[in-house]
Write a protein that binds this DNA or RNA. Sequence first.
DNA 1: GGCCAGGACACCA
DNA 2: TGGTGTCATGGC
Length: 224
Amino acid sequence: MAKIPDKHILLDIYNRLLSKYGAQHWWPGDSPFEVIIGAILTQSAAWTNVERAINNLKSADALSTQAIMTLSLEQLAKLIRPSGYYNAKALKLKAFVQWLDENYRNDLKIISTVETNALRNQMLAVYGIGNETADSILLYALDRPVFVIDAYTRRIISRISLLSEDNTYDEYQQYFMKHLPVDLKLFNEYHALLVRLGKNACRKKPLCGDCCLTDICRLYIGSG
DNA sequence: GGCCAGGACACCA
DNA sequence: TGGTGTCATGGC
């Protein structure tokens, strides 16, 4: 079988997922700031638990940079408790809003003037902001066309043998950004669809034989 | 009762 | 540079 160009595979997978699952309408959140808070709270946590934490913040009128700066660490941790790792995440939220305050006067409009890669590097220097969280913020809160890599993406792409589990975050990201048109809407929807597939697909080795990931594996590597 | 969920960081060799 | 431990709730 002739080798299919990677860009065609990636677009084909995207179209199949979009056809199967439909638009995912990410990121859930009423404002860019809420998206940022969600991106931090969802680290290694189920989204349903993050929603609880965000609702607690809303109920306490604490979903703002000013409120998060004003609350004590203990008060903040108590509000976000359902999202897990609440002590660590309270520190992370504090660190982020402090950075936002010191560098951009809490004004996301000012951030819009900063070049994407420079902004990414700035965020990576903030405690608690790693590759995935920085890229989630860039893509879903700040409308920058960067591709977000997460555990689901790695699992799916390595399972199809396009890359290895051992490849780095940057290598995964470069792979997508090299083989896809740089398009905000496409990157937004693609990542959301991969998460949807990841949640839906079994993790068995070999695959169950009855999930969407099995179908995709059969298409591209001839086995499940 | 164990595993997992839309990670990141500290520490050690 | 890579491997391991830690942080922790809630659903299944």
